[in-house]
Design a protein around this nucleic acid. Sequence first.
RNA 1: GGGCCUGUAGCUCAAUGGUUAGAGCAGGCCGCUCAUAACGGCUUGGUUGGGGGUUCGAGUCCCUCCGGGCCUACCA
Length: 517
Amino acid sequence: MSEPYYITTAISYPNGRPHIGHAYEAIAADAIARFHRMAGRDVRFQTGTDEHGLKMAQTARDRGITARALCDEMSSYFKVMCDTLHISYDRFIRTTDDDHKIACQALWKGMVARGDIYLGRYEGWYSVRDEAFYDEKELTKGEGEQRLSPQGTPVEWTVEESWFFRLSAYQDKLLELYRSHPEFIQPESRRNEVIRFVEGGLSDLSVSRTSFDWGIAVPDSPGHVMYVWVDALTNYLTGIGYPALDGTLGRFWPADVHVIGKDIVRFHAVYWPAFLMSADVPLPKQVFGHGFLLHKGEKMSKSVGNVVDPIELASVFGVDQLRYFLLREVSFGQDGSYSEDAIVTRCNADLANNLGNLAQRSLSMIAKNCGGKVPQPHDASAADTALLAGIAAVEQVARQHMMGGQYAIHHALQAIWEQMSLTNQYFAEQQPWAVRKTDPARADTILYYTAEAIRQLAILARWVMPVSCDKLLDILAQSPDARDFAALGQQLEPGIDLPPPAPIFPRLELAADAKAD
RNA sequence: GGGCCUGUAGCUCAAUGGUUAGAGCAGGCCGCUCAUAACGGCUUGGUUGGGGGUUCGAGUCCCUCCGGGCCUACCA
Protein backbone atom coordinates (compact mmCIF):
# COMPACT_ATOMS: atom_id res chain seq x y z
CA MET A 1 0.00 0.00 0.00
CA SER A 2 1.31 3.46 -0.83
CA GLU A 3 2.51 5.92 1.74
CA PRO A 4 -0.30 7.60 3.69
CA TYR A 5 -0.78 11.35 3.57
CA TYR A 6 -3.24 13.09 5.87
CA ILE A 7 -4.28 16.68 5.28
CA THR A 8 -6.97 18.70 7.02
CA THR A 9 -8.54 22.12 6.85
CA ALA A 10 -9.73 23.94 9.91
CA ILE A 11 -13.33 23.17 10.71
CA SER A 12 -15.62 26.14 10.20
CA TYR A 13 -17.89 27.63 12.82
CA PRO A 14 -21.19 27.70 10.97
CA ASN A 15 -22.82 30.70 12.56
CA GLY A 16 -23.15 32.25 9.13
CA ARG A 17 -22.97 31.28 5.52
CA PRO A 18 -19.59 30.31 4.11
CA HIS A 19 -17.66 33.15 2.53
CA ILE A 20 -14.80 33.33 0.08
CA GLY A 21 -12.25 32.81 2.86
CA HIS A 22 -13.73 29.43 3.70
CA ALA A 23 -13.70 28.57 0.02
CA TYR A 24 -10.08 29.62 -0.34
CA GLU A 25 -8.87 27.36 2.44
CA ALA A 26 -10.89 24.43 1.17
CA ILE A 27 -9.65 24.93 -2.39
CA ALA A 28 -6.03 25.22 -1.36
CA ALA A 29 -6.17 22.13 0.81
CA ASP A 30 -8.03 20.26 -1.90
CA ALA A 31 -5.41 21.13 -4.48
CA ILE A 32 -2.66 19.88 -2.18
CA ALA A 33 -4.62 16.71 -1.48
CA ARG A 34 -5.23 16.08 -5.17
CA PHE A 35 -1.60 16.72 -6.01
CA HIS A 36 -0.46 14.09 -3.55
CA ARG A 37 -3.08 11.66 -4.76
CA MET A 38 -1.91 12.15 -8.33
CA ALA A 39 1.64 11.59 -7.15
CA GLY A 40 0.62 8.21 -5.84
CA ARG A 41 0.22 8.89 -2.15
CA ASP A 42 -2.62 7.31 -0.22
CA VAL A 43 -4.38 10.52 0.74
CA ARG A 44 -6.92 11.19 3.42
CA PHE A 45 -8.42 14.66 3.38
CA GLN A 46 -10.75 16.01 6.01
CA THR A 47 -12.80 19.16 6.41
CA GLY A 48 -15.98 19.95 8.30
CA THR A 49 -17.80 22.12 10.79
CA ASP A 50 -17.29 23.03 14.45
CA GLU A 51 -20.78 23.15 15.86
CA HIS A 52 -20.77 23.45 19.61
CA GLY A 53 -20.64 26.46 21.84
CA LEU A 54 -22.68 29.28 23.15
CA LYS A 55 -23.35 31.15 19.94
CA MET A 56 -24.94 28.21 18.22
CA ALA A 57 -27.06 27.46 21.28
CA GLN A 58 -28.17 31.08 21.50
CA THR A 59 -29.00 31.37 17.83
CA ALA A 60 -31.01 28.18 17.97
CA ARG A 61 -32.90 29.44 21.00
CA ASP A 62 -33.61 32.76 19.27
CA ARG A 63 -34.98 30.94 16.27
CA GLY A 64 -36.98 28.54 18.42
CA ILE A 65 -35.34 25.42 17.07
CA THR A 66 -33.04 22.86 18.63
CA ALA A 67 -29.34 23.42 18.48
CA ARG A 68 -29.03 20.20 16.58
CA ALA A 69 -31.49 21.35 13.94
CA LEU A 70 -29.64 24.64 13.53
CA CYS A 71 -26.36 22.80 13.14
CA ASP A 72 -27.81 20.46 10.57
CA GLU A 73 -28.95 23.41 8.53
CA MET A 74 -25.86 25.57 8.86
CA SER A 75 -23.41 22.73 8.40
CA SER A 76 -25.17 21.75 5.21
CA TYR A 77 -24.30 25.12 3.65
CA PHE A 78 -20.64 24.38 4.16
CA LYS A 79 -20.96 20.91 2.78
CA VAL A 80 -22.79 22.26 -0.26
CA MET A 81 -20.02 24.77 -0.76
CA CYS A 82 -17.41 22.03 -0.64
CA ASP A 83 -19.32 19.85 -3.05
CA THR A 84 -19.91 22.75 -5.42
CA LEU A 85 -16.21 23.55 -5.47
CA HIS A 86 -15.30 19.89 -5.95
CA ILE A 87 -13.51 19.60 -2.67
CA SER A 88 -12.41 15.98 -2.57
CA TYR A 89 -12.75 15.38 1.15
CA ASP A 90 -12.76 11.84 2.41
CA ARG A 91 -14.71 12.90 5.43
CA PHE A 92 -16.78 15.95 6.17
CA ILE A 93 -16.61 15.87 9.91
CA ARG A 94 -19.10 17.47 12.27
CA THR A 95 -18.24 17.93 15.91
CA THR A 96 -21.74 16.74 16.66
CA ASP A 97 -20.94 13.35 15.13
CA ASP A 98 -21.12 10.48 17.60
CA ASP A 99 -17.54 9.32 17.20
CA HIS A 100 -16.25 12.80 17.92
CA LYS A 101 -17.57 12.64 21.46
CA ILE A 102 -15.67 9.41 22.03
CA ALA A 103 -12.45 10.91 20.67
CA CYS A 104 -12.71 14.09 22.72
CA GLN A 105 -13.40 12.25 25.91
CA ALA A 106 -10.54 9.86 25.24
CA LEU A 107 -8.14 12.74 24.66
CA TRP A 108 -9.43 14.41 27.80
CA LYS A 109 -8.86 11.27 29.83
CA GLY A 110 -5.37 11.05 28.43
CA MET A 111 -4.64 14.55 29.68
CA VAL A 112 -6.18 13.71 33.05
CA ALA A 113 -4.03 10.61 33.29
CA ARG A 114 -0.96 12.74 32.75
CA GLY A 115 -2.07 14.96 35.62
CA ASP A 116 -2.46 18.04 33.43
CA ILE A 117 -6.12 18.72 34.16
CA TYR A 118 -7.14 20.37 37.40
CA LEU A 119 -10.22 22.11 38.73
CA GLY A 120 -9.96 25.85 39.10
CA ARG A 121 -11.96 28.98 38.72
CA TYR A 122 -12.51 31.04 35.63
CA GLU A 123 -13.10 34.65 36.48
CA GLY A 124 -14.22 37.48 34.28
CA TRP A 125 -16.84 39.99 33.33
CA TYR A 126 -19.99 38.02 32.68
CA SER A 127 -23.28 39.12 31.16
CA VAL A 128 -26.19 37.06 32.34
CA ARG A 129 -28.31 38.25 29.46
CA ASP A 130 -25.69 37.29 26.86
CA GLU A 131 -24.53 34.26 28.80
CA ALA A 132 -21.03 35.27 27.87
CA PHE A 133 -17.77 36.41 29.35
CA TYR A 134 -16.19 39.52 27.97
CA ASP A 135 -12.72 40.84 28.02
CA GLU A 136 -12.11 44.03 29.92
CA LYS A 137 -11.20 45.77 26.64
CA GLU A 138 -14.56 45.03 25.09
CA LEU A 139 -16.52 46.76 27.82
CA THR A 140 -17.95 50.24 27.83
CA LYS A 141 -18.94 52.35 30.80
CA GLY A 142 -22.64 52.79 31.41
CA GLU A 143 -24.52 54.67 34.11
CA GLY A 144 -22.39 55.22 37.18
CA GLU A 145 -19.97 52.39 37.74
CA GLN A 146 -21.97 49.93 35.64
CA ARG A 147 -19.96 48.29 32.90
CA LEU A 148 -21.66 47.22 29.72
CA SER A 149 -20.96 44.48 27.19
CA PRO A 150 -20.58 45.26 23.49
CA GLN A 151 -24.29 44.46 23.23
CA GLY A 152 -25.04 47.03 25.89
CA THR A 153 -26.04 44.53 28.53
CA PRO A 154 -24.78 44.84 32.10
CA VAL A 155 -21.87 42.67 33.12
CA GLU A 156 -20.61 41.64 36.51
CA TRP A 157 -17.44 40.07 37.82
CA THR A 158 -18.22 36.40 37.93
CA VAL A 159 -16.38 33.37 39.10
CA GLU A 160 -17.12 30.10 37.36
CA GLU A 161 -15.71 26.72 38.17
CA SER A 162 -13.63 25.44 35.29
CA TRP A 163 -11.23 22.68 34.42
CA PHE A 164 -7.79 23.92 33.49
CA PHE A 165 -5.10 22.44 31.32
CA ARG A 166 -1.56 22.81 32.60
CA LEU A 167 -0.29 24.56 29.49
CA SER A 168 2.37 26.32 31.53
CA ALA A 169 4.18 23.00 31.91
CA TYR A 170 4.78 22.77 28.17
CA GLN A 171 6.70 25.92 27.42
CA ASP A 172 10.10 24.25 27.17
CA LYS A 173 8.81 21.23 25.30
CA LEU A 174 7.09 23.44 22.76
CA LEU A 175 10.14 25.61 22.24
CA GLU A 176 12.19 22.47 21.77
CA LEU A 177 9.65 21.27 19.20
CA TYR A 178 9.92 24.52 17.22
CA ARG A 179 13.71 24.36 17.42
CA SER A 180 14.09 20.77 16.34
CA HIS A 181 11.33 20.92 13.73
CA PRO A 182 11.47 24.29 12.01
CA GLU A 183 9.03 22.98 9.43
CA PHE A 184 6.38 22.43 12.11
CA ILE A 185 5.01 25.95 11.71
CA GLN A 186 4.95 27.53 8.28
CA PRO A 187 5.33 30.02 6.84
CA GLU A 188 8.36 31.37 8.60
CA SER A 189 6.84 34.60 9.85
CA ARG A 190 4.08 32.70 11.65
CA ARG A 191 6.70 30.55 13.26
CA ASN A 192 8.54 33.58 14.56
CA GLU A 193 5.36 34.95 16.08
CA VAL A 194 4.53 31.70 17.81
CA ILE A 195 8.02 31.33 19.23
CA ARG A 196 7.84 34.86 20.60
CA PHE A 197 4.49 34.14 22.13
CA VAL A 198 5.63 30.97 23.84
CA GLU A 199 8.88 32.51 25.02
CA GLY A 200 6.80 35.15 26.73
CA GLY A 201 5.39 32.50 29.06
CA LEU A 202 2.26 30.41 28.98
CA SER A 203 -0.70 30.53 31.32
CA ASP A 204 -2.83 27.52 32.03
CA LEU A 205 -5.84 27.23 29.82
CA SER A 206 -9.46 27.12 30.85
CA VAL A 207 -10.83 24.13 28.99
CA SER A 208 -14.36 23.67 30.28
CA ARG A 209 -17.49 25.71 30.82
CA THR A 210 -20.54 25.40 33.00
CA SER A 211 -22.39 28.38 31.54
CA PHE A 212 -23.83 26.43 28.62
CA ASP A 213 -24.41 22.80 27.84
CA TRP A 214 -24.20 22.64 24.02
CA GLY A 215 -20.94 20.76 23.91
CA ILE A 216 -19.18 17.58 24.77
CA ALA A 217 -19.54 16.52 28.37
CA VAL A 218 -16.40 16.46 30.46
CA PRO A 219 -15.99 12.87 31.70
CA ASP A 220 -17.10 12.39 35.29
CA SER A 221 -17.85 16.05 35.78
CA PRO A 222 -21.56 16.82 35.62
CA GLY A 223 -22.34 20.34 34.44
CA HIS A 224 -19.08 20.82 32.55
CA VAL A 225 -18.74 20.79 28.80
CA MET A 226 -15.44 21.07 26.98
CA TYR A 227 -14.53 24.51 25.79
CA VAL A 228 -13.80 25.09 22.16
CA TRP A 229 -10.13 24.10 21.90
CA VAL A 230 -10.27 20.54 23.04
CA ASP A 231 -13.49 19.97 21.17
CA ALA A 232 -12.53 21.58 17.88
CA LEU A 233 -8.92 20.49 17.56
CA THR A 234 -9.69 16.89 18.35
CA ASN A 235 -11.64 16.59 15.12
CA TYR A 236 -8.37 15.79 13.37
CA LEU A 237 -8.04 12.68 15.53
CA THR A 238 -11.68 11.71 15.38
CA GLY A 239 -11.49 11.44 11.63
CA ILE A 240 -8.89 8.71 11.69
CA GLY A 241 -10.49 6.61 14.39
CA TYR A 242 -8.89 7.86 17.59
CA PRO A 243 -8.56 6.46 20.21
CA ALA A 244 -8.11 3.33 18.10
CA LEU A 245 -4.99 4.50 16.29
CA ASP A 246 -4.14 0.91 15.48
CA GLY A 247 -7.30 0.71 13.36
CA THR A 248 -7.43 0.86 9.57
CA LEU A 249 -7.39 4.65 9.54
CA GLY A 250 -4.86 5.01 12.30
CA ARG A 251 -1.98 4.79 9.89
CA PHE A 252 -2.88 8.28 8.68
CA TRP A 253 -1.75 9.70 12.01
CA PRO A 254 0.27 11.79 12.54
CA ALA A 255 -1.24 14.23 10.07
CA ASP A 256 1.10 15.57 7.41
CA VAL A 257 -0.35 19.05 7.50
CA HIS A 258 -3.11 21.07 9.09
CA VAL A 259 -4.00 23.83 6.65
CA ILE A 260 -5.46 26.73 8.62
CA GLY A 261 -5.89 30.47 8.55
CA LYS A 262 -3.25 32.67 10.08
CA ASP A 263 -5.71 33.77 12.77
CA ILE A 264 -5.74 30.39 14.45
CA VAL A 265 -2.09 29.49 14.16
CA ARG A 266 -1.56 29.78 17.87
CA PHE A 267 -4.21 27.28 18.76
CA HIS A 268 -2.77 24.78 16.33
CA ALA A 269 0.89 25.43 17.02
CA VAL A 270 0.74 25.85 20.80
CA TYR A 271 -2.37 24.37 22.40
CA TRP A 272 -2.77 21.43 20.07
CA PRO A 273 0.73 19.96 20.34
CA ALA A 274 0.59 20.51 24.11
CA PHE A 275 -2.67 18.57 24.35
CA LEU A 276 -1.21 15.79 22.26
CA MET A 277 2.01 15.60 24.23
CA SER A 278 -0.04 15.43 27.38
CA ALA A 279 -2.24 12.62 26.07
CA ASP A 280 0.80 10.85 24.61
CA VAL A 281 -0.33 11.11 21.00
CA PRO A 282 2.25 11.75 18.24
CA LEU A 283 2.32 15.31 16.91
CA PRO A 284 1.23 16.37 13.44
CA LYS A 285 4.12 17.12 11.11
CA GLN A 286 3.12 20.61 10.11
CA VAL A 287 0.76 23.48 10.68
CA PHE A 288 0.48 25.76 7.69
CA GLY A 289 -1.10 29.17 8.26
CA HIS A 290 -2.32 30.63 5.01
CA GLY A 291 -3.10 34.30 4.53
CA PHE A 292 -6.38 36.11 4.16
CA LEU A 293 -8.15 37.14 1.01
CA LEU A 294 -8.66 40.83 0.61
CA HIS A 295 -11.17 42.36 -1.73
CA LYS A 296 -9.28 44.89 -3.80
CA GLY A 297 -6.81 45.18 -0.97
CA GLU A 298 -9.45 45.78 1.67
CA LYS A 299 -10.46 43.50 4.46
CA MET A 300 -13.79 41.86 3.87
CA SER A 301 -16.48 42.58 6.37
CA LYS A 302 -20.21 42.48 6.55
CA SER A 303 -20.43 46.17 7.36
CA VAL A 304 -18.44 47.21 4.29
CA GLY A 305 -20.65 44.89 2.33
CA ASN A 306 -17.88 43.30 0.31
CA VAL A 307 -18.45 39.76 1.54
CA VAL A 308 -18.78 37.51 -1.43
CA ASP A 309 -20.59 34.23 -1.72
CA PRO A 310 -18.14 31.75 -3.22
CA ILE A 311 -20.90 29.73 -4.82
CA GLU A 312 -22.09 32.86 -6.57
CA LEU A 313 -18.57 33.59 -7.80
CA ALA A 314 -18.16 30.05 -9.02
CA SER A 315 -21.43 30.17 -10.88
CA VAL A 316 -20.46 33.40 -12.61
CA PHE A 317 -16.88 32.52 -13.55
CA GLY A 318 -16.76 28.75 -13.22
CA VAL A 319 -15.56 26.48 -10.45
CA ASP A 320 -12.23 25.65 -12.04
CA GLN A 321 -11.70 29.28 -12.98
CA LEU A 322 -12.19 30.35 -9.40
CA ARG A 323 -9.93 27.58 -8.15
CA TYR A 324 -7.22 28.46 -10.61
CA PHE A 325 -7.41 32.14 -9.92
CA LEU A 326 -7.13 31.80 -6.16
CA LEU A 327 -4.26 29.35 -6.32
CA ARG A 328 -2.31 31.12 -9.03
CA GLU A 329 -2.84 34.72 -8.04
CA VAL A 330 -2.25 34.41 -4.31
CA SER A 331 1.18 33.52 -2.94
CA PHE A 332 0.22 30.67 -0.67
CA GLY A 333 0.95 31.71 2.89
CA GLN A 334 0.60 35.42 2.27
CA ASP A 335 -2.47 37.58 2.08
CA GLY A 336 -3.94 37.88 -1.37
CA SER A 337 -6.18 40.28 -3.15
CA TYR A 338 -8.98 39.41 -5.48
CA SER A 339 -11.47 41.28 -7.59
CA GLU A 340 -13.81 40.29 -10.35
CA ASP A 341 -11.64 42.22 -12.72
CA ALA A 342 -8.55 40.27 -11.69
CA ILE A 343 -10.38 36.96 -12.08
CA VAL A 344 -11.45 37.84 -15.60
CA THR A 345 -7.99 39.05 -16.60
CA ARG A 346 -6.16 36.11 -15.15
CA CYS A 347 -8.52 33.47 -16.45
CA ASN A 348 -8.68 34.92 -19.94
CA ALA A 349 -4.92 35.19 -20.21
CA ASP A 350 -3.97 31.83 -18.71
CA LEU A 351 -6.98 29.64 -19.34
CA ALA A 352 -8.89 30.85 -22.40
CA ASN A 353 -5.97 32.27 -24.39
CA ASN A 354 -3.01 30.21 -23.36
CA LEU A 355 -4.29 26.71 -22.62
CA GLY A 356 -7.81 26.69 -24.04
CA ASN A 357 -6.99 28.24 -27.37
CA LEU A 358 -3.89 26.12 -27.77
CA ALA A 359 -5.97 22.99 -27.36
CA GLN A 360 -8.72 24.22 -29.61
CA ARG A 361 -6.50 25.33 -32.49
CA SER A 362 -4.38 22.19 -32.52
CA LEU A 363 -7.14 19.68 -31.94
CA SER A 364 -9.40 21.20 -34.52
CA MET A 365 -6.56 20.91 -37.03
CA ILE A 366 -6.30 17.25 -36.12
CA ALA A 367 -10.04 16.86 -36.52
CA LYS A 368 -9.99 18.46 -39.95
CA ASN A 369 -6.73 17.09 -41.33
CA CYS A 370 -6.10 13.81 -39.61
CA GLY A 371 -9.50 12.22 -39.82
CA GLY A 372 -10.18 12.79 -36.15
CA LYS A 373 -7.47 10.34 -35.11
CA VAL A 374 -4.25 10.93 -33.23
CA PRO A 375 -1.79 11.53 -36.07
CA GLN A 376 1.21 9.32 -36.70
CA PRO A 377 4.47 11.00 -35.67
CA HIS A 378 7.52 10.62 -37.87
CA ASP A 379 11.11 11.50 -37.02
CA ALA A 380 11.22 13.90 -34.11
CA SER A 381 13.02 17.16 -34.66
CA ALA A 382 15.13 18.86 -32.03
CA ALA A 383 12.21 21.18 -31.34
CA ASP A 384 9.84 18.25 -30.80
CA THR A 385 12.20 16.63 -28.35
CA ALA A 386 12.89 19.86 -26.51
CA LEU A 387 9.18 20.50 -26.13
CA LEU A 388 8.56 17.27 -24.28
CA ALA A 389 11.78 17.50 -22.31
CA GLY A 390 10.69 20.86 -20.93
CA ILE A 391 7.38 19.48 -19.79
CA ALA A 392 9.01 16.44 -18.25
CA ALA A 393 11.28 18.70 -16.25
CA VAL A 394 8.43 20.79 -14.92
CA GLU A 395 6.87 17.79 -13.25
CA GLN A 396 9.90 17.64 -11.00
CA VAL A 397 9.72 21.35 -10.32
CA ALA A 398 6.08 21.03 -9.34
CA ARG A 399 6.86 18.13 -7.04
CA GLN A 400 9.53 20.14 -5.30
CA HIS A 401 7.16 23.01 -4.74
CA MET A 402 4.26 20.84 -3.60
CA MET A 403 5.97 18.07 -1.69
CA GLY A 404 8.91 19.86 -0.15
CA GLY A 405 6.93 21.13 2.82
CA GLN A 406 6.48 24.67 1.57
CA TYR A 407 3.40 24.26 -0.58
CA ALA A 408 4.43 26.95 -3.04
CA ILE A 409 1.28 26.36 -5.05
CA HIS A 410 1.61 29.56 -7.06
CA HIS A 411 5.17 28.70 -8.05
CA ALA A 412 4.18 25.24 -9.19
CA LEU A 413 1.46 26.74 -11.34
CA GLN A 414 3.75 29.39 -12.70
CA ALA A 415 6.19 26.70 -13.83
CA ILE A 416 3.45 24.64 -15.47
CA TRP A 417 2.04 27.64 -17.31
CA GLU A 418 5.46 28.57 -18.62
CA GLN A 419 5.40 25.26 -20.44
CA MET A 420 2.05 26.15 -21.95
CA SER A 421 3.52 29.35 -23.30
CA LEU A 422 6.44 27.40 -24.70
CA THR A 423 4.01 25.01 -26.37
CA ASN A 424 2.25 27.93 -28.00
CA GLN A 425 5.62 29.18 -29.16
CA TYR A 426 6.46 25.77 -30.56
CA PHE A 427 3.20 25.64 -32.43
CA ALA A 428 3.64 29.11 -33.89
CA GLU A 429 7.21 28.43 -34.98
CA GLN A 430 6.46 25.04 -36.50
CA GLN A 431 3.44 26.41 -38.42
CA PRO A 432 1.75 23.10 -39.11
CA TRP A 433 -0.92 24.87 -41.19
CA ALA A 434 1.77 26.01 -43.65
CA VAL A 435 3.90 22.86 -43.48
CA ARG A 436 0.92 20.72 -44.39
CA LYS A 437 0.91 22.15 -47.90
CA THR A 438 4.40 20.85 -48.62
CA ASP A 439 5.09 18.11 -46.10
CA PRO A 440 1.99 16.46 -44.61
CA ALA A 441 4.03 13.91 -42.68
CA ARG A 442 5.90 16.64 -40.88
CA ALA A 443 2.62 18.44 -40.18
CA ASP A 444 1.27 15.25 -38.62
CA THR A 445 4.36 15.02 -36.47
CA ILE A 446 3.97 18.57 -35.23
CA LEU A 447 0.33 17.98 -34.39
CA TYR A 448 1.19 14.75 -32.64
CA TYR A 449 3.73 16.40 -30.39
CA THR A 450 1.43 19.29 -29.71
CA ALA A 451 -1.37 16.94 -28.69
CA GLU A 452 1.04 14.98 -26.52
CA ALA A 453 2.18 18.18 -24.85
CA ILE A 454 -1.43 19.13 -24.17
CA ARG A 455 -2.10 15.72 -22.69
CA GLN A 456 0.77 16.11 -20.27
CA LEU A 457 -0.13 19.68 -19.42
CA ALA A 458 -3.72 18.65 -18.71
CA ILE A 459 -2.45 16.05 -16.28
CA LEU A 460 -0.09 18.52 -14.67
CA ALA A 461 -2.92 21.01 -14.11
CA ARG A 462 -5.57 18.52 -13.09
CA TRP A 463 -5.10 18.88 -9.33
CA VAL A 464 -6.11 22.52 -9.69
CA MET A 465 -8.86 22.22 -12.27
CA PRO A 466 -10.12 18.66 -12.08
CA VAL A 467 -13.25 18.98 -14.17
CA SER A 468 -11.80 21.06 -17.00
CA CYS A 469 -8.67 18.99 -17.29
CA ASP A 470 -10.71 15.84 -17.36
CA LYS A 471 -12.69 17.32 -20.25
CA LEU A 472 -9.44 18.01 -22.01
CA LEU A 473 -8.29 14.46 -21.40
CA ASP A 474 -11.68 13.20 -22.61
CA ILE A 475 -11.09 15.05 -25.87
CA LEU A 476 -7.74 13.29 -26.07
CA ALA A 477 -9.50 9.95 -25.54
CA GLN A 478 -7.57 9.21 -22.38
CA SER A 479 -8.91 6.54 -20.07
CA PRO A 480 -9.80 7.54 -16.51
CA ASP A 481 -6.94 5.51 -15.09
CA ALA A 482 -4.33 7.31 -17.20
CA ARG A 483 -4.65 10.72 -15.64
CA ASP A 484 -2.21 10.72 -12.74
CA PHE A 485 1.42 11.75 -12.80
CA ALA A 486 2.35 8.14 -13.40
CA ALA A 487 0.66 8.46 -16.81
CA LEU A 488 2.87 11.36 -17.88
CA GLY A 489 5.37 8.91 -19.32
CA GLN A 490 2.93 6.92 -21.46
CA GLN A 491 2.78 8.75 -24.76
CA LEU A 492 -0.34 9.29 -26.76
CA GLU A 493 -1.14 6.32 -28.93
CA PRO A 494 -1.19 7.21 -32.65
CA GLY A 495 -4.27 6.23 -34.61
CA ILE A 496 -6.82 6.26 -31.80
CA ASP A 497 -10.11 8.01 -32.48
CA LEU A 498 -10.62 11.40 -30.93
CA PRO A 499 -14.00 12.91 -30.18
CA PRO A 500 -14.74 16.24 -31.87
CA PRO A 501 -12.95 19.03 -30.00
CA ALA A 502 -14.94 21.60 -28.08
CA PRO A 503 -13.72 24.74 -26.33
CA ILE A 504 -13.14 24.14 -22.64
CA PHE A 505 -12.20 27.51 -21.23
CA PRO A 506 -14.57 30.21 -22.47
CA ARG A 507 -13.43 33.79 -22.39
CA LEU A 508 -14.88 35.57 -19.38
CA GLU A 509 -16.49 38.94 -19.42
CA LEU A 510 -16.85 41.40 -16.62
CA ALA A 511 -20.47 42.00 -15.66
CA ALA A 512 -21.61 45.52 -16.42
CA ASP A 513 -22.26 46.36 -12.78
CA ALA A 514 -18.79 45.18 -11.79
CA LYS A 515 -17.16 47.45 -14.36
CA ALA A 516 -18.66 50.45 -12.63
CA ASP A 517 -16.60 50.11 -9.48
C1' G B 1 5.92 49.59 24.84
C1' G B 2 8.20 44.87 22.68
C1' G B 3 8.27 41.90 18.32
C1' C B 4 7.30 39.91 13.26
C1' C B 5 6.23 40.72 8.15
C1' U B 6 6.03 44.06 4.10
C1' G B 7 7.24 48.31 0.47
C1' U B 8 10.78 46.58 -6.67
C1' A B 9 7.35 48.66 -13.83
C1' G B 10 0.23 50.84 -14.25
C1' C B 11 -1.10 45.54 -11.75
C1' U B 12 0.70 40.61 -9.59
C1' C B 13 5.35 39.04 -8.35
C1' A B 14 11.10 37.37 -9.21
C1' A B 15 16.17 38.35 -8.30
C1' U B 16 22.68 32.41 -2.65
C1' G B 17 26.04 40.42 -1.39
C1' G B 18 28.33 39.95 -7.73
C1' U B 19 27.50 41.68 -15.37
C1' U B 20 23.17 46.50 -17.73
C1' A B 21 17.22 44.80 -11.47
C1' G B 22 13.95 40.45 -14.47
C1' A B 23 8.99 37.73 -15.85
C1' G B 24 3.64 37.57 -16.66
C1' C B 25 -0.55 40.73 -17.34
C1' A B 26 -1.90 45.57 -19.09
C1' G B 27 -0.03 49.45 -23.06
C1' G B 28 2.41 50.36 -28.17
C1' C B 29 4.26 48.49 -33.04
C1' C B 30 4.81 44.38 -36.49
C1' G B 31 3.78 39.45 -38.23
C1' C B 32 0.47 35.19 -38.87
C1' U B 33 -4.40 33.07 -40.18
C1' C B 34 -4.60 26.81 -37.55
C1' A B 35 -7.47 28.97 -33.31
C1' U B 36 -11.88 31.24 -28.29
C1' A B 37 -10.35 39.21 -31.75
C1' A B 38 -6.95 34.07 -29.93
C1' C B 39 -1.13 32.99 -31.16
C1' G B 40 4.10 34.67 -32.21
C1' G B 41 8.01 38.57 -32.49
C1' C B 42 9.69 43.31 -31.09
C1' U B 43 8.92 47.23 -27.71
C1' U B 44 7.58 51.43 -23.99
C1' G B 45 7.81 51.43 -18.85
C1' G B 46 12.11 51.58 -12.57
C1' U B 47 15.86 57.32 -8.39
C1' U B 48 14.11 49.01 -5.93
C1' G B 49 9.43 54.10 -0.19
C1' G B 50 13.19 58.48 1.71
C1' G B 51 17.98 59.38 3.95
C1' G B 52 22.58 57.66 5.90
C1' G B 53 26.26 53.70 6.70
C1' U B 54 29.35 48.93 5.92
C1' U B 55 31.64 46.96 1.30
C1' C B 56 35.86 46.59 -4.33
C1' G B 57 30.46 45.92 -5.06
C1' A B 58 23.80 46.75 -1.73
C1' G B 59 17.04 45.49 -4.12
C1' U B 60 19.81 42.18 -0.72
C1' C B 61 23.51 43.57 5.30
C1' C B 62 23.32 47.72 9.46
C1' C B 63 21.01 52.45 11.40
C1' U B 64 17.09 55.88 10.86
C1' C B 65 12.60 57.97 9.03
C1' C B 66 7.88 57.24 6.22
C1' G B 67 3.78 54.04 4.52
C1' G B 68 0.97 49.23 4.89
C1' G B 69 -0.27 44.57 7.52
C1' C B 70 -0.04 41.51 11.81
C1' C B 71 1.27 39.23 16.74
C1' U B 72 1.75 40.61 21.75
C1' A B 73 2.15 43.30 26.45
C1' C B 74 0.73 47.13 29.46
C1' C B 75 -1.72 51.58 31.02
C1' A B 76 -6.45 53.36 31.66
